[in-house]
Design a binder for these strands. Structure first.
Length: 151
RNA sequence: GCAGGGGCCCAGGCGGUCGCCGGUGGCGCGCGAGCCGCGAGGCUCGUUCGUCGCGGGAGGAACGUCCGAGCUCCACAGGGUGAGGUGCCGGGUAACGCCCGGUGCAGGUGACUGCGAGGAGAGUGCCACAGAGAACAGACCGCCGGGCUCGUCGUUCGCGGCGCGCCCGGUAAGGGUGAAACGGCGGGGUAAGAGCCCACCGCGUCGUCGGCAACGACGAUGGCAGGGAAAACCCCACCUGGAGCAAGGCCACAUAGGGAGGCGACGGCGUCGAAAGGCGUCGGAAGGGCGACCCGCCCGGUGCCUCCGGGUAGGCUGCACGAGACCCGUGGCGACGCGGGUCCUAGAGGAAUGAUCGUCACCGCGGCGAGGGCGACCGAGCCGCGGAACAGAACUCGGCGUACGGGCGCCUGCGACC
RNA sequence: AGGCGCGUAGCUCAGUGGUAGAGCACUACCUUGACACGGUAGGGGUCGUUGGUUCAAUCCCAAUCGCGCCUA
């Protein structure tokens, strides 16, 4: 949306850019900052590697709709994330939790909803990176992943 | 035309742009192994990632999880009891609680549809309220006969008729109650009545005939014996071993067997040996298993059980050629069977199969409207707006149930016209 | 994948084949100067839905909808 040039090609989105395990999702949820929109709750958190491209995790509960509608929400959210590589700086992971009513949205509506909070998202992303700077550095020298504290 | 019944089919098409999953082929970086070379290095194979190309990628219900199986493990899974399920007859099938064809009953004018439709001559229990009486019952009113008192009328003075009341008896026709009242209706019969007798109907039994059978038709006979309910317990017949792909198998990693408590059994024989002990054989405990219990049996043979503590939650496989799909022929009323040919058709794993734009078809509403009709009105075509359902594989099939958009021809009833 | 349970008045629950109930809440009246408390009376129900069995169903049977729970 920014730049006026409709994104078309070259924006891939494979498994490497997804947050898959429940453990990782909980880690983001715990230390992340939240941004609410009308149909989504966005949670930003630091990824394990600050140089890697940002990753995406999606949560759609049964309250949102049946499996067809839940799948559609996930596909549209994934598409919106894929077409907006500049939405987040590298190293910041995004967790999207759908709220009720999300299945009625098309791709354009989701993009508009996110663009409206873009400034807030950028500010929160900088906060997250700054706050976790030392931790991230420590992390790089320490054991690889899975250092979630038993809490 | 309207209303209805049943059957079959489809699950939007095409194109542009950008993606996802796995397969396959090429290229590139890296890694590993092997071989060659003194060496630099080279070659081959495998593989992560990236990239380019090719072809593939949800359903009729993928859904619910109500049944039946395949497959895998549990021990080879037996007998009895119990538990659960099924329940007209015949057939189909790998199997079924499914399907097909019949039978009976019920519903509908009809096309058609529905039915847990074995047994109440095995037993136990239940049938509220109402009602006199509710299961081998019962006399409240009524009806009929007899007796007694009283009243009245008549009297040939013997008594007789009528009526109120009481008593004894007969009666299930009528009233009334009920969901149901111990066959129905009509006639005869009788004091009044009653299958007491008769005709018809119903019911039971027997026989003959038809049918594989459920059952049907006909005849004889009994004289009524019979209530309902088994989706109350139950009886009868038949079926069912248990668990489930997180089944199960392989690899890697980790613990290397920690602590507490409890139980226990080892024995006989043979043989070798100087002995310790070894080998063979027989019996067998603790404990465990065969769904629950019993029987019966099996494992267990030097350990076993319970609790606490500790470790692992990664990869591969199972995993898609199957009771498979389609076409043709053939047997059968049909479900379905048989034969031949062609084809390979999703395999993900926090979970792909999509997003968006255009266009063409489809449906609804509104407007314009060629034209048709005396008219109400019908209406090709054009424009605009809106709609386009139910729903997402998770080991795989066969059914059932439920949700839902549209199309096709067939059949039935009614109305109008010819 | 396997298994279990619950839907009854506005709320929390009884009832388990024969008129559907309790507590709280609600309404009216009494009591008070007024209120609370108390007392008297009253209203309120597709028993989740749809079929079936039965003379009769909240209850029995089947299907279906919604909610909750257990095991792996």
């Amino acid at each position: 949306m920014a730049g006026g040039e409709p994104a078309t090609s070259g924006f891939h989105f494979g498994r490497a850019r997804r947050i898959k395990s429940r453990r990782e999702i909980l880690a983001v949820q715990h230390g992340g900052s939240r941004v609410h929109t009308a149909h989504f709750l966005l949670i930003l958190g630091r990824g394990p590697d600050t140089t890697a491209a940002s990753r995406l995790g999606i949560t759609v509960t049964r309250k949102v709709g049946d499996s067809v509608r839940r799948n559609r929400v996930k596909r549209v959210v994934r598409e919106a994330f894929r077409l907006a590589p500049a939405f987040l700086p590298s190293g910041v992971d995004l967790l999207v939790i759908a709220k009720a009513g999300a299945p009625t949205l098309g791709l354009a509506a989701v993009q508009a909803e996110w663009a409206a909070v873009r400034g807030l998202v950028e500010r929160r992303a900088r906060e997250v990176l700054a706050r976790s700077g030392p931790a991230a550095a420590e992390r790089l020298t320490g054991p690889p992943a899975m250092t979630t504290k038993p809490r």
